[in-house]
Design a protein around this nucleic acid. Structure first.
Lengths: 141, 141
DNA sequence: ATCCCTGCAAAGCCTTTGCAATGCA
DNA sequence: TGCATTGCAAAGGCTTTGCAGGGAT
């Protein structure tokens, strides 16, 4: 079963309706190799469904995030990126060209010390590195 | 020398001009115990300087960020938070009430493996935990 | 048949920008 | 005095909302 089908099943399993629009959005998410924004998804889906509205794209993305199958990344670049990739990984953003790369990291190492008396129930952890990729390295000695 | 004075000195040391507006913004940043947004700074400074403009606040905050004395936090809440605190720490956001807490973390543990061939020159690292604080803990068994 | 979902359009929110006037160095 | 900085107002970009019609279950 493809990723698209699996996600569609998950939608239905939660009592949500599977519409052609939602399937197209999920398809677009799977097609992107990495970290599209809502507008990029919107643009891609519009190629096949010219009547697709912003509302539908944003609503669907929000639902998928609530279902915990999609990760929302706010990188401070003015728009949110979405990440369907599974497994734990950190993100590496190039301050020059804006490209985003996945990098593995040791989840255990980052885990909050249980001795710290914050009392929070942790749901999610995001690790974001900023820097310059080889192509954008500033000229310094 | 107070934190305010120290930051003002740093401004001048970089050839920037020290205006009353900038001093007021720095003062407001120091007054806040934690993580104000640009609008919160704007509102506070306006109490004393009713003519303060958005442009000045946003420009000054951006400069301080460029000077690396202020950290910009994008928590996906629609607005950016600013953090004058020194030293490495992660942030803990409550998904219920939105409060933000600092938590210590082991910077070394998070460091990217140099064996990973990403080739980036890392400038900055942000670790953000999301969860529920004791007051907002969802009712579950 | 129900009511969730969609499309349209407009509003909302935070942030940035343009430009003339001001004032710091 | 020169030029960075300010204030004002408006624009900009992304996201959300309201509502009536339509479609999935």
């Amino acid at each position: 079963m493809s990723s698209v089908d699996r996600l569609c099943e998950q939608l239905k399993a939660q009592g949500r309706r599977l519409t052609p629009q939602r399937r197209a959005i999920i398809q677009a998410l799977c097609d992107y190799d990495s970290h599209p924004t809502a507008e990029q998804i919107f643009a891609r889906v519009r190629q096949d469904m010219p009547d697709m509205s912003h509302a539908t794209v944003y609503n669907t993305l929000r639902e998928l995030v609530e279902m915990n199958v999609l990760r929302e990344l706010d990188l401070g670049l003015g728009e949110r990126h979405y990440d369907l990739h599974e497994g734990d990984h950190a993100h590496l953003i190039c301050l020059g060209c804006g490209r985003i790369e996945d990098v593995p990291y040791d989840k255990e190492a980052v885990k909050l010390s249980s001795r710290h008396p914050h009392g929070f129930r942790i749901v999610d952890c995001n690790v974001i590195f900023r820097g310059y990729c080889p192509d954008c390295m500033p000229q310094e000695k």
